[in-house]
């Protein structure tokens, strides 16, 4: 493990930019290609890269397993909760037009929340999958 110095320094250099790119893909998804699904996978790939170069324990320190496993249902809850919010505010399930003062703004907010839910679930699931396979191998 001590021999691959270039790999370790390179990974350290690249990781923040991958994370930044994931956030760009997430929040720029309204205007360019991207969205919750892609950003979730990119976030998970940050953790996977980290655990490939620095070992599983380092990855566990940054993304502890209980947190990752809780992210899976949390994302679905955010998504479904956005739908319920529309229901409470007097429209149909998953109708976003009541979430804000005018309909278009409400739709933007609704899409934002829903994409956030997708991001959380996808990132959580992909990381948890990798952890599950990697732990089995130890």
């Amino acid at each position: 493990m001590s021999l691959d110095l270039i790999l370790r320094v390179g990974t350290k250099l690249v990781l923040p930019f991958i994370l930044l790119f994931a956030l760009y893909v997430q929040f720029h998804g309204d205007y360019g290609p991207g969205g919750g699904f892609q950003a979730g996978v990119i976030v998970a790939s940050v953790i996977i890269l980290l655990s490939i170069t620095f070992g599983l324990d380092a990855a566990h320190r940054i993304a502890p397993q209980p947190l990752v496993e809780r992210m899976i249902p949390l994302g679905v809850l955010i998504y479904a909760g956005t739908g319920v919010a529309g229901l409470i505010l007097g429209k149909n399930y998953l109708d976003y037009s009541v979430l804000s003062h005018d309909a278009v703004h409400g739709h933007e907010l609704g899409v934002f929340l829903v994409e956030a839910g997708v991001l959380v679930t996808v990132a959580g699931t992909m990381t948890a999958l990798f952890y599950a396979f990697a732990e089995r191998g130890r």
């Binding site: 998804g29 309204d30 205007y31 360019g32 290609p33 278009v104 739709h107 933007e108 899409v111």
Partner: peptide, 9 residues
């Protein structure tokens, strides 16, 4: 209707 130019999203 939604203010989002990326139709896929």
């Amino acid at each position: 209707e939604t203010g989002i130019p990326n139709v896929v999203t």
